[in-house]
């Protein structure tokens, strides 16, 4: 086989290159995390040292907890992300089923119409979206964000899910029909469980952009009661620029939930990306 692939020097070089980039990728995150647990003096004197018994301090976290309503922000982000994902998956799967299962006039056209949004960013329509939310009284509600993220996520969800639904065997669905199942039961009982892996891929793809978005929370829901974690930390950090302990702690608190989600879902995410879901 490939001689070049067995050369130990090549292998060392490969590891050296990957380690270098891994260090570059993780360095800022690690620096933020370790310094968030240190006293102000230690942050400046030894920024690269781990917190020691001497330099350990939680003063930044105390400020954050006192000043910012991070639990509320976290809860808002959680509600927006979870409800949006539920809508994207349910509505997306229903539409994908209609497109892949039934032949009706305008099927291809409908598929194309729904696919338009894959390439066109929803942000382009922000001016009119804000208008719409003002008119319907949804400004400063989580519902405004949920609707926007649902609309944003649907095109890719329909596209991916209908690809998968085409692979579900016709025999199975027809057997269900002969047994007298309604079309709704066929969808919910037979088809949905079979495309669960594809649903997970869609969910993971949508989760991170929704959680991290700054644009729509800033424009549609900047009120104190509806701030998401991303917007909340942005505003908080902006106010506390000179309080390094607080800023570093706020950053750490914002990193943590995403990092936990990533540890749980990274396998799904990486499999989704590498399985050619984006063709």
């Amino acid at each position: 086989m490939h001689k070049a692939r067995h050369n130990p020097l090549n292998s060392i070089a490969a590891h050296a290159a990957l380690l270098t980039w891994t260090a570059i990728a993780l360095f800022p995150v690690v620096v933020i995390l370790i310094n968030s647990f240190k006293t102000r003096k230690a942050i400046f004197r030894e920024p690269l040292a781990l917190p020691s018994a001497d330099s350990f301090s939680l003063v930044g976290y105390q400020t954050v907890m006192r000043q910012g309503d991070f639990f509320l922000y976290f809860q808002n982000s959680m509600i927006v992300t979870v409800v949006s994902l539920a809508f994207i998956l349910l509505f997306g799967a229903m539409a994908a089923f209609a497109l892949s299962e039934y032949r009706f006039r305008g099927n291809a056209l409908m598929g194309l119409y729904l696919a338009l949004g894959i390439m066109i960013p929803i942000r382009i329509g922000t001016v009119a979206i804000l208008d719409l939310m003002v008119q319907t009284g949804l400004v400063n509600t989580l519902m405004a964000l949920i609707l926007v993220y649902t609309a944003q996520g649907l095109p890719l969800a329909v596209f991916i899910l209908s690809e998968f639904m085409r692979q579900v065997s016709d025999d199975l669905k027809n057997a269900g029909r002969i047994d007298g199942l309604s079309e709704y039961r066929i969808f919910f009982r037979l088809v949905l469980p079979l495309v669960r892996p594809a649903m997970a891929t869609v969910a993971v793809f949508n989760m991170i952009p929704i959680w991290n978005d700054l644009w729509f929370p800033l424009i549609l829901a900047p009120g104190e009661a509806t701030k998401t974690l991303t917007l909340g930390s942005q505003v908080f950090i902006g106010q506390f620029v000179t309080d390094w302990n607080a800023v570093l702690s706020a950053l750490s608190l914002a990193i943590l939930p995403v990092l936990i989600l990533y540890v749980i879902f990274s396998r799904q995410l990486i499999r989704g990306i590498t399985s050619g879901a984006v063709k």
Partner: peptide, 30 residues
């Protein structure tokens, strides 16, 4: 009956049209 096709398509098409496509055209118009 074809009613179920409409039921399956309606939520996605409605949300997508109302919150994405319609504002997009409205922005171009504004």
């Amino acid at each position: 009956s074809r009613a179920h096709v409409i039921v399956f398509l309606a939520p996605a098409v409605l949300v997508y049209t109302a919150v994405m496509i319609w504002p997009l055209f409205n922005t171009l118009r504004l």
